[in-house]
Design a protein around this nucleic acid. Structure first.
Lengths: 218, 218
DNA sequence: GACAAACGCGAGTGGTCGCTCGCATTCTTG
DNA sequence: CAAGAATGCGAGCGACCACTCGCGTTTGTC
């Protein structure tokens, strides 16, 4: 039987440049219109290229989004590894939040297409949704094990719940950060960290000093 | 000049029932597919009606969404008034969160189409977006004045920022609540209230006891 | 320079969607 | 009951979109 790739299509340097240009154009269009509303003709126009040229490099619209997603997910995984460093996890909570959140915030600010493709409520192609779910699960596991480090005696179900809530709160703040610029954006970054700190700190405090628990929680 | 409604179209009881049925069908379809992906033919099919019948009661697809939005917004305003009662605002923070958040959560759980139309990241018709923005601004003002009651000396800009963050955190938790059911849902409701309580309580505590401020905030 | 392969084009094709139109049926009104 | 209005239908129209095809241009190889 033939190899997995029966199309070892020879690409010229020009072609690679076109692909990069098309993906950049697609990122812009997806970002402003969302996946479904983005038309392939609009992507081609954004890249100053004819529709036919676009379809020389991508078999269909979905393949454009998939390729773009894979490149973004790859960068995201690098950010992921760079954020959850053992050194970072040993920091006190406020410093740890700085160290972990800043790379993720920076990534999303520099690649707004990522959220447009992953966080969109519209019907996204199945393959991208799967990859997004895998990333989500991976991040959740990280946060859970991080919580487990502080709270070894908390049942797994509760840890999972706290991790989901933490992640959801982060995404909410991230949206707020990304819809502002300059000084306002910075202010929302610190406000987001403050919110997460206040949410998580009592957990740790309670674990360290169980006698104080239950003051604020009915 | 004629009245604002030059079409005082006489409706029969059957017609009113059809309109209600069509709006219910539209709510279902918008809820599962989003506004843009929802086809008018699908809405008509969901209501067991022909496309022509649908267009006897609505001039176009946008009008369906607008009418549905207006009905939902009306119910939302009732919820709004019922949540921000003077009696509720005088409660201690934890009780106030119960009293204010529960009606909003209940409304969204019972009318998932509301979030589908308002919170969708897809291009929504301008009129709905305007109404949503008005509601958002109205809710924000409420939260700001509520914060102002606790923190009369905080500058307005900072209050605004805290109000935006509070609202964003609530929406994040609400999404989490609505994607779960039964006991899990209840657990996320209390977890959301816990997060908001912990975010807001230190503000009030700091204002009441300024000497304690700065412990957790750099 | 000659040949082939990759590149580039844009009018055209099939399909879907929002919406219309002519006509049949049911209700209200006198 | 008769007339007119409201209701109901579904094939069909125009617009738009994802995608194709035939042909001309550029690039790499010998």
């Amino acid at each position: 039987m033939p190899s997995e790739e029966p199309k070892p299509r020879r690409r010229q340097a020009r072609g690679e440049r076109r692909i990069a240009s098309l993906l950049q154009a697609a990122a812009n269009v997806f970002c402003t219109s969302g996946y479904t509303a983005a038309s392939t003709n609009a992507i081609a126009r954004e890249a100053s290229v004819s529709p036919g040229t676009l379809y020389q490099y991508f078999p269909n619209k979905e393949a454009i989004a998939v390729e773009l997603s894979e490149r973004l997910l790859h960068q995201m995984r690098e950010t992921h590894g760079q954020a959850f460093t053992p050194a970072n996890l040993a920091l006190p909570l406020d410093r740890m939040l700085d160290a972990v959140l800043d790379p993720f915030i920076a990534f999303n600010v520099e690649n707004p297409a990522f959220l447009a493709l992953m966080h969109g409520s519209e019907p996204i192609p199945g393959q991208i949704a799967e990859e997004h779910d895998a990333l989500h699960a991976s991040l959740l596991t990280r946060v859970e094990s991080l919580l487990g480090h502080y709270l070894p005696d908390t049942p797994a179900a509760e840890r999972h719940q706290v991790a989901e809530m933490t992640f959801a709160l982060f995404k909410a703040g991230l949206d707020l950060v990304m819809t502002h610029e300059g000084a306002e954006r910075d202010a929302y970054v610190t406000e987001l960290k403050r919110a997460l700190f206040r949410y998580l700190d009592p957990l740790i405090g309670d674990a360290a000093h169980p006698a104080e628990s239950g003051i604020h929680t009915p």
